[in-house]
Amino acid sequence: MLPANLSQLSAFSAVARLGSFGKAGAELSLSTSAISHAIRTLEERLGLSLFNRTTRSVALTEAGQHLLERIEPALRDVGKAIEEMNDFRARPAGTLRINTSRGAGQLVLMPIVPRFLALYPDISVELVDNEGMVDIVAEGFDAGVRFLNAVPEDMVGVPIGIPQRFVVVGTPAYFARHAAPLQPDDLLSHECVRYRFPSGRMYKWDFEKDGVRREVDVPGRVTLGDSTMEVQAALAGVGLAITLESVVRQDIDAGRLIPVLEDWSMSVSSFTLYYPRQRRLKPALRAFVDLLREARGEPGLA
């Protein structure tokens, strides 16, 4: 029997980890058909089925689970060895994959990525936005970006940008029909744009003033799962929305939106880039972290 090659084993590992031929292809920069061909060839060489496939799911067979457990350590060692080859380059190279919330991507990553690409022409950057948290290690990301309070404890965090503040906004036309709320409980008589987390939990609006915290389960006929659409709904006059002040600063300055309850505005930490504490940093990530630290006037990594 001919031995399986590394590309077939890498495809097998990616499909097993991600549970999808399409996601595995995206991670490996291959088409779904190429991934399917690699798995089919591997199964033919072994004379075994490695996956149980249905139209909705892909699951490992017993033989597939055994193979995955045996090859994963070796594949990790090969990946580390290849990454270490970058240490012999004059400048970092490779692809940097970062998982981010959409707001963080727009506000703090996109302003710095063009400079990073100009400094390191051999590095490619892939930003993938998710409103919910993902396991960056399991999903094959080098790093993630979220607010500090959402960063897992076993991760190293690097602050990006300045602390943020939430603000409640509505259009002038809306406030021509409704009196502006003066305290958080006044929102109970307003039309609000509600937000549901990917987990299914509804977001209750948070407020703070002089050390007093308030949480309001606001009413509203529109519920969304995307922060960008929340702002769009507010601009369309659907109701009040709560969002980061930096996201709507231009709309406020232009008079398209009016902020209210500003003395109750909730401040949050700055966005934070995070990565596994125990993982050896690939050169591309190290270069990106150093650029972030430089922008904040901090020393780079040793």
Rank of each mutant, 00 (worst) to 15 (best):
L42P: 01
Q278W: 07
L257S: 09
E245A: 02
P114F: 02
E208N: 02
T100K: 00
D263F: 04
I258V: 15
A118S: 08
S124K: 12
V113H: 05
M1K: 12
Y274P: 02
L28T: 11
A233Y: 08
V248W: 01
G144S: 10
A295F: 03
F166V: 01
T243A: 06
D251Q: 12
S267P: 06
A233D: 04
Y275T: 11
R296S: 14
L107R: 06
Q278R: 14
R286Y: 06
D251S: 12
A16I: 07
L2S: 09
G237M: 13
R45S: 11
Q278H: 13
R194Y: 02
V134E: 11
A74Q: 12
A118L: 07
R196D: 05
V145T: 08
P163H: 06
P299F: 13
R45Y: 00
A93H: 09
S199V: 05
G211I: 03
L6T: 10
S101D: 11
E83A: 10
A34M: 01
P114D: 06
A254M: 07
H37E: 13
E83H: 01
P283N: 11
V125S: 04
G170S: 06
S267M: 10
F116E: 08
D154H: 10
A104H: 08
R53K: 11
D186C: 08
V193K: 04
L281D: 04
R89T: 08
A118Y: 09
L48K: 15
I35G: 05
A81V: 06
A34V: 02
R97W: 03
V289Y: 05
P219S: 02
A74S: 14
A14P: 11
V125E: 03
A143T: 10
H37Y: 08
E84A: 15
I162L: 08
V125K: 04
L285Q: 13
D210V: 00
V260W: 01
A233P: 03
T54Q: 10
L117I: 05
L281S: 06
R177L: 11
E191R: 03
A233F: 06
R277I: 11
K209Y: 00
R56M: 10
L285N: 11
V168M: 06
R146N: 08
L18Y: 07
P276W: 05
V168A: 07
R70M: 14
V260K: 05
R214W: 05
V128L: 13
P259E: 10
D206E: 14
V231W: 01
V231R: 00
N130R: 13
T243I: 06
Q164A: 09
L281F: 09
E126C: 06
Y174F: 09
A180E: 15
E153T: 13
V248G: 03
K282Y: 01
F175K: 01
S267V: 09
Q106K: 13
A93P: 05
T100N: 04
F51L: 04
A236W: 03
P184D: 09
Q8I: 01
A138P: 00
L257N: 11
R277E: 14
E131V: 04
P152K: 14
